[in-house]
């Protein structure tokens, strides 16, 4: 066992793949649900569309135990600092999903009360547009997120 296995780097890249694989199938999500998109989120989360197939069915209601922050619904300027704080409380690695057009851009709420896209207050990994997005759209987005998590390996 005198031989140094780390030098060629093969073991490292395989470990990256394994970590990425493990992470993408055990997404613990924190649902930050503020508006009507929540109904569609419930539909995705429940057995009919069943995001548990993707390992993402387990909602954690503490940000400290969550991997993915699902921001579901309109974010007002009043709640924005709360959302930012929840994001800050999450332990790395963490990802953010903007669920629905209000979180992507503010949607049709171009007014005094609404944050014009949550990417103005925190980094977003995945945008799922729609008002609300259909469950199929969410599932497509979830698979894209899994692809990203896999590609990141342990670098995230």
């Amino acid at each position: 066992m005198e031989q140094d296995l780390s030098a060629p780097g093969i073991l490292t890249s395989q470990l990256d793949q394994a970590i990425g694989w493990a992470r993408k199938y055990s997404i613990f999500q924190y649902p930050f649900v503020t508006a009507c998109c929540g109904m569609e989120f419930m539909s995705v989360a429940c057995s009919h569309y069943d995001i548990d197939r993707f390992g993402a069915g387990f909602p954690r209601f503490s940000p400290r135990q969550a991997d993915v922050l699902m921001v579901v619904g309109t974010i007002s300027h009043k709640i924005a600092p709360v959302l930012r704080r929840i994001y800050d409380q999450m332990a790395a690695p963490k990802w953010v999903v903007a669920f629905g057009v209000c979180t992507c851009t503010g949607g049709f709420y171009d007014n005094y009360a609404t944050v014009q896209g949550i990417d103005t207050i925190l980094p977003v990994d995945l945008y799922i547009p729609g008002c609300p997005p259909r469950p199929e759209t969410v599932l497509e987005g979830l698979m894209l997120l899994q692809k990203k998590i896999q590609a990141q390996g342990r670098r995230a």
Binding site: P81, I121, Y127, P129, K148
Partner: peptide, 29 residues
């Protein structure tokens, strides 16, 4: 009508990059 008073984040969010209709599908950044 365009006045914004955010607690955090930019006061003028219109300057940032907007999603175009072509992007209206789930996408990764």
């Amino acid at each position: 009508i365009k006045k914004r008073q955010p607690l955090i984040g930019p006061a003028d969010a219109s300057a940032r990059e907007r999603l175009s209709p072509a992007d209206l599908r789930p996408r990764i950044v």
